[in-house]
Design a protein around this nucleic acid. Structure first.
Length: 827
DNA sequence: TAACGTTCTTTTTTT
DNA sequence: AAGAACGTTA
């Protein structure tokens, strides 16, 4: 049971003040989650029906954590409570009510960024708009912006100032029409259309207003206008709205988040109580001082004074590395050293960076050192070709109006339905389908009018129309006989899979069926290349994901109040989950590995030791922000978030030179480093762990031929600068590559890459700089490893036209490779 | 129609 | 450096 005595006075007040609006300004590490969970538990303890409580978070992870912690406080008494992200909550509402939005069907699907892109490009093609002049990405961003502001197409047209915006408004209309015809929504639609539903159907809004008498919103500083409106509509009646946030941690402006929402809460709710949580329980005094010193440079923030009872602890270390390679090496050395010296676990360390691309170099170093790590990256797994393919199959089975998925799978594996044929089909459908009826009302405005749907449509009946069309393509479609036959076969395939899905059974069973009956599996097995192998492994991994879903399907559906008997509900639930659940949600605290992630992903997490790498102008702060004060402030807040993740130790790293876009560029230390007073920094002195022992250790793990990178090595006495350690030694015995082993995939769960995966072991540095090296001789009989061919043995070496060429026998194939370019590593 | 080769862009951050 | 996009060839 929850115990209010565990809370400090401010926290306790925040828990006990249940009625009326409340703004809770919770600094980093101030026990915010604790307050939120206790608050809900307290409400339930005081007799408030959990059924009438809605708690909204930003990430699925936060939602899961909150639910778990509440459950542990109130046991089973929490039944009926809604905890979820904005998107999950809206989906839940839309699932029940979407058919009120004339034209959308129950089995609508969510289009992710790649789908949006594909759809938009189709639109641009139709409108004859040149992609070179109007970058699809920029157009999508503009459309997303409009949606976040709840602008309808005509709103956007009215607002549009310059030529680009006018074009974007026009594209918005066509894009939206196409989404609609596909019975699909993008991420922004999920919020926008829920708002529209509420506005157009007061009785629906009324139901939810009455139900959710108590509303809590976490990370309020990250809400955008659409989310803001949504919340305020829901809270209008009872005004029991508790928002929690920290303006210093607002880092989603680029996604439309409006920091004003939190800054002006008191204007919106004049009767609101305002409480501040200022005691930090997470970080040492030194860390807090640095974080405060940085964020102080922002204007327009609510002044607050975070404090801690903890001692100062170690000073924050700032390390200047010679280059990106050395930066990565420094991190590994520190991890290994601190682990030994302080008895820390790998799991106590996190490496944070501004962009996902920065993980690669670090990974190489960790693989080599045999230090276990895991990359928590955005979407990687679901971006893989084969995963997208199988998902497209599943989506098309679920919603046979989804032309994006149709396009993707219709000729995969090859069925002899080429681009020309597909184009003809799509044009035929377009010609019949589109037209009037849409124009207005996709925004928040009133969307009256009947929409015409040609073939694609919404009701189950209409949906099958497209499949029927494929099953017997009319003459005037102009297809070749061969294509007609192939198309028929495809239609039958999908139809039979759809029937199988309707009959029930597990998702895993269905997926296997898709893979087998489509011939996808077979084609991939016949492929025989290492890439094909990796793809097969990824599909196996995907089947693990579906199996996991199957296992928890019952409770998942029950939780969402979905009827498992209903047709395709399992498939729909899975697709929704895949679309909305990011990989960071798979974050496991218990795992004893070093965690790599972006700072955005790290928000809400904490670690004993934090490394922040790439602290250079143009990287962090990002080059796009430096000219724009508002953006720069957001970068600074991001830096604040990064530093405040740490409990004990922080290492800030920057490099004098860095490989970017394939070339070496000079690095200028981040201005954020300058903003830290000298007395708070421990600059490039001996910090953390560093001994000759560790140097030797790390050197023995170096790459082949290291030490001749061609860079002039006269840079001062950077701590840990490998150049000071003299000339390179010859490659060492097997085992130097740690856990890399045979290079077989460890099949990281979900989208997570982890140490030991073939991809990570792949690109060795010798590949990029090998030409500069005094090339290590490759002797006949040497065992070598290649990122895609795997292990092999050198059969011959000679010099052809000035290039060292080796012949290597790999498993199953013999290759002639030019040493300077081949990504070969001696084992 | 598909496979291949060359040129070009890419790096924010995520639901 | 790596991947996508585009154009050329079998």
């Amino acid at each position: 049971m929850y115990d209010l005595n565990d809370l400090n006075p401010a926290q306790r007040e925040a828990v006990e003040l249940m009625e009326g609006p409340l703004l809770l300004l919770a600094g980093a590490g101030s026990g915010k989650t604790r307050v939120l969970t206790h608050r809900v538990a307290h409400m339930i303890g005081q007799g408030i029906d959990p059924w009438s409580i809605l708690a909204i978070t930003f990430t699925n992870k936060a939602a899961a954590e909150m639910r778990e912690r509440i459950t542990s406080l109130v046991r089973s008494e929490g039944k009926g409570l809604w905890v979820g992200t904005f998107h999950a909550v809206c989906m839940r509402i839309l699932r029940m009510e979407v058919e009120k939005l004339a034209g959308y069907g129950r089995s609508f699907v969510i289009f992710d960024t790649a789908d949006q892109m594909a759809l938009l490009r189709a639109v641009l093609k139709e409108l004859n708009i040149d992609e070179k002049r109007f970058a699809p990405r920029a157009l999508l961003a503009a459309i997303s912006n409009a949606k976040n502001k709840l602008w309808s197409v005509s709103d956007f047209e009215l607002q549009a100032g310059d030529f680009f915006e006018k074009m974007a408004a026009r594209v918005y209309g066509a894009y939206q029409e196409k989404l609609f015809a596909n019975n699909a929504m993008d991420f922004d639609d999920i919020i926008m259309l829920t708002v529209r539903l509420f506005r157009e159907y007061p009785q629906v809004l009324g139901y939810y207003q009455n139900r959710f008498r108590y509303i809590l919103v976490d990370e309020y500083q990250d809400t955008n206008h659409a989310q803001y409106v949504l919340i305020n509509l829901l809270a209008e009646r009872y005004r029991n709205l508790c928002v929690v946030g920290d303006d210093d941690q607002s880092v989603y402006g680029w996604r439309g988040a409006d920091i004003q929402n939190i800054l002006e809460f008191e204007r919106d709710y004049p009767e609101a109580a305002v409480l501040k949580l200022e005691q930090n329980y997470r970080s040492s005094g030194s860390i807090l001082a640095v974080a405060n010193a940085i964020v102080r440079h922002n204007r327009g923030r609510k002044e607050k004074a975070l404090w801690t009872q903890k001692g100062d602890g170690e000073r924050v270390a700032v390390h200047r590395a010679a280059d990106d390679v050395e930066e990565a090496r420094f991190v590994v050395d520190q991890v290994l050293g601190l682990r030994d010296e302080l008895g820390l676990n790998y799991g106590d360390f996190a490496v944070l960076y501004r962009t996902n691309a920065q993980s690669r170099g670090l990974e190489e170093r960790f693989v080599r050192a045999g230090a276990p790590y895991r990359v928590y990256s955005g979407v990687k797994f679901y971006e893989r070709m084969e995963i997208k393919d199988i998902l497209a199959y599943l989506r098309f089975i679920y919603n046979p109006t989804d032309m994006v998925s149709f396009r993707r799978v219709v000729n995969v594996p090859r069925r002899g339905i080429g681009d020309t044929s597909v184009q003809k089909v799509l044009e035929y459908v377009e010609g019949r389908g589109s037209g009037s009826g849409y124009e207005e009302g996709m925004g928040a405005g009133s969307g009256s009018g009947v929409r015409t749907h040609g073939v694609s449509g919404t009701g189950t009946g209409e949906q099958i129309l497209f499949l029927e069309l494929l099953a017997s393509p009319p003459e005037d479609m102009g297809l070749q006989a061969r294509a007609v036959k192939a198309l028929k076969g495809f239609a039958e395939l999908v139809q039979s899979l759809r029937e199988a899905a309707e009959t029930g059974g597990t998702l895993t069973g269905l997926t296997r069926m898709v893979l087998e009956e489509s011939g996808y599996w077979e084609a991939l097995k016949a492929d025989g290349t290492p890439e094909g192998e990796a793809r097969l492994e990824n599909l196996e991994e995907f089947l693990n994901v579906t199996a996991e879903f199957d296992e928890h399907a019952a409770e998942y559906l029950e939780d969402l109040e979905l009827d498992p008997e209903q047709n395709l509900v399992l498939l729909g639930g899975f697709l929704e989950r895949v679309a909305l659940v990011a990989d960071i949600d798979a974050y496991e605290d218990g795992e004893d590995v070093v965690k790599f992630m972006t700072i955005h992903s790290a928000k809400g997490l904490e670690f004993p030791v934090v490394f922040i790498v790439g602290m250079e102008e143009g990287i962090f702060p990002s080059s796009r922000s430096v000219m724009e004060p508002a953006l720069l402030e957001e970068e600074r807040r991001l830096c604040y978030v990064a530093v405040t993740r740490a409990k004990e130790r922080v290492f800030l790293l920057h490099a004098r030179r860095r490989m970017r876009f394939g070339r070496t560029e000079p690095g200028v230390p981040s201005r954020f480093l300058e903003e830290i007073p000298a007395r708070l920094k421990d600059e490039d002195k001996d910090k953390g762990y560093k001994s000759s022992q560790s140097s030797r250790l790390s050197r023995s793990r170096d790459r082949i031929g290291e030490g001749g990178t061609g860079s002039s090595g006269s840079e001062g006495k950077t701590v840990g600068d490998w150049r000071s350690r003299g000339t390179p030694v010859a490659p060492v015995a097997a085992g130097a590559f740690g856990s890399e082993g045979s290079g077989g995939s460890s099949g990281a769960a979900g989208a997570l890459r982890s140490g030991g995966s073939p991809g990570a072991a792949g690109s060795m540095e010798s590949e990029s700089r090998g030409q500069d090296l005094p090339q290590m001789a490759y002797h006949v009989g040497d065992r070598v490893i290649h990122p895609s061919f795997g292990q092999g043995i050198v059969m011959s070496c000679r010099n052809e036209g000035g290039e060292d060429v080796v012949t290597v026998v790999f498993a199953g194939e013999i290759k002639k490779l030019i040493v300077a370019y081949a990504r070969l590593e001696k084992v």
